[in-house]
Design a protein around this nucleic acid. Structure first.
Length: 535
RNA sequence: GCGCUCGUAGCUCAGCUGGAUAGAGCAUCUGACUACGGAUCAGAAGGUCGGGGGUUCGAAUCCCUCCGAGCGCGCCA
């Protein structure tokens, strides 16, 4: 039972004693931003006073008195503050206990949550057409999707990362035709692909190759390579061609007909998406007998349920109009309303020479994911994307990215990690080994820098759960920066190997550093950024 | 016109789904242990949270309404 549970339990008892009925199932307990407000703070008095017809401060005072009479472990003082907050100040002993837990759990066990145990999630992201290189926007989804997958995994979900390859249809034909035209020294079709890469790839293409098939392979290989340089991998590559060949479209259409959600009108076949909140019904099969792109997509999403209880799409803002109809289709097929989730990410805007660079595939000035990686390196490129929420458009100034890449936050965090490892190296050189933790007195860790670092580490488990629930990997980035800052501050003020440091304190500090190694390792791992031992 | 997302320091962004005095990084200014790794640390300055109403003990956060930005509204993919 960790501190929070003990505090909650104490609060619950106090509420009962104060005659509050009913006692809420979830008791609000948070870490105040302002240290003067204690280590933990609860707003239960404020939250329950209204319903109980009580005065918040009066009720709060009763809670405080009850808790003072019988304080939970580690609690040094309980106070009433502000409009009715109950603030707990704890002895540093609770942090010392946390450090022991971190060391016991190690990188594999620390900040692991069982929130998703027994559930599975299928995450689809990027899914760019196999008709060219990935651009900077794709790279954002790659970094985001992969880190989100890592968060789900750490929270106990069985995760499948998936990329849907649209290796069939009009665009692939156009791409193949464009390659063939370039190979023959001609201009691509007007609605074909005009990027420079088409000409370059056409030179590589063997004369006897089928331009469509070869082009798909070439583009796919290019995309895989770039994502790998950003440490992004997939478990499953879903082929549209194979899906369609399997007859999945027909069986899904039959199922929709059987349940009455699909109907014929004006010579076409429609899905009654309005039944599930769409503003108009959508065509599945056109009057010329050809399916729209919507139908194979429905079949694909339906199939994904074989690989996850929760099916998640990560899409760019330009696809948000698509969400309602797909959600409607999934419900029409009998999937529970909440089981299909779409995460919409805003666009990436790139600035070069103070000018916005348009991400147009037709124009030649498109900035590729590959450019970013070559400019700044995989770690910097990746962390740059994970620096902010996907809810806001991201502006990346390429000149700043290059000029200040050495000031990128990724180095700040990696440097902290390198320092942690350098300590172990130097300690080894000096023959100063850590003694077993049971023999070490962590209560010597009372310096504000030591306490701040331990406190930062203690927050990671909450950060992981919250980041997963909010689908917000950037919160891990925020934490990693704070933890690195705490380490740097500690490093600056608290020498370890210096001769004038007493051995017991040295031992305690070495174990604090070991716990930091574990915490930073977990954080960097979730971000998919390397954790170098030296820089 | 309708819908979705957004508007927070000079710039780039956080803000734990309603909490206490709105926080970081960069840029600017001033400093630091005669460097267990200075890719570090400390301090200063910087705000009408786009404007205006409302809900309540309490609003950057929820509701309404304006203003502004991006994206979407095909029997295209």
């Amino acid at each position: 039972m960790d501190v929070r549970d003990q505090l909650r339990s104490g609060l619950r008892g106090a509420l009962v004693a104060a005659g509050v009925d009913p006692v809420p199932a979830e008791l609000g307990l948070e870490r105040p931003a302002n240290p003067e407000h204690g280590d933990w703070s609860s707003n239960v008095a404020l939250a329950t006073a209204k319903a109980a017809g009580r005065n918040p401060r009066e009720l709060g005072q009763q809670l405080v008195e009850h808790l003072r009479a019988d304080p939970p472990p580690h609690v040094s003082s309980v106070d009433l503050a502000g409009p009715g907050f109950v603030n707990f100040h704890l002895h540093d002993s609770w942090l010392h206990e946390v450090l022991r837990d971190i060391v016991d759990q190690g990188t594999a066990g620390f900040a692991v949550s069982s929130r998703g145990a027994g559930s599975s999630v299928n995450l689809e992201y990027v899914s760019a057409n196999p008709t060219g290189p990935l651009h900077a926007g794709h790279a954002r989804w790659a970094a985001y999707g992969d880190s989100l997958a890592r968060l789900f995994t750490r929270c106990g979900y069985a995760v499948q990362r998936e990329f849907y390859v649209n290796d069939r249809g009009v665009q692939t034909q156009l791409f193949g035709a464009s390659l063939a035209a370039r190979a023959a020294g001609e201009e691509p079709p007007e609605d074909g692909y005009h990027g420079e890469y088409v000409s370059e790839w056409a030179k590589e293409m063997p004369a006897e190759a089928d331009p469509v098939a070869w082009g798909l392979e070439r583009a796919h290989a290019d995309q895989v390579e770039v994502m790998r340089s950003m440490n992004v991998e997939f478990d499953h590559w879903a082929s549209e061609k194979r899906l369609v060949a399997s007859g999945a479209m027909e069986s899904v259409l039959a199922a929709l007909r059987r349940t009455g959600h699909a109907f014929d009108a004006d010579g076409a076949t429609w899905l009654r998406t309005t039944e599930f909140g769409d503003d108009k019904d959508r065509v599945l099969v056109k009057s010329d007998g050809e399916p729209t792109y919507f139908l194979p997509d429905i079949a694909y999403h339906h199939e994904k349920y074989e690989r996850g209880d929760l099916v998640v799409d990560i899409l760019g803002a330009d696809h948000h109009g698509y969400v309602t109809r797909m959600s409607a289709a999934m419900q029409a097929l009998g999937h529970p309303a909440g089981s299909y989730e779409v995460l919409i990410g805003q666009n990436v805007t790139l600035v070069r020479d103070g000018q916005e660079v348009r991400l147009s595939r037709r124009a030649g000035n498109i900035v590729l994911a590959r450019d970013l990686v070559e400019l700044a390196g995989g770690d910097v490129a990746r962390l740059t994307f994970l620096l902010q929420s996907i809810d806001t458009t991201q502006t990346i100034d390429l000149d700043v990215l290059v000029a200040e890449s050495s000031e990128n936050p990724v180095y700040y965090v990696q440097y902290a990690n390198a320092r942690v490892h350098s300590l172990a190296r130097r300690a080894g050189e000096q023959g100063r080994a850590r003694r077993p933790l049971v023999d070490v007195d962590l209560s010597l860790l009372t310096h504000p820098r030591e306490v701040a670092l331990a406190r930062s580490l203690s927050e990671l488990p909450d950060v992981v759960e919250r980041a997963m629930e909010h689908r917000a990997p950037h919160q891990v980035t925020m934490w990693a920066r704070e933890c690195a800052a705490a380490l740097h501050g500690f490093w600056h003020d608290c020498p370890i190997l210096r001769d004038d440091i007493d051995e017991p304190l040295r031992q305690a500090r070495m174990w604090l550093v070991e716990a930091t190694r574990i915490g930073l390792g977990v954080g960097l791992g979730l971000l998919g950024v390397s954790a170098p031992e030296s820089m």
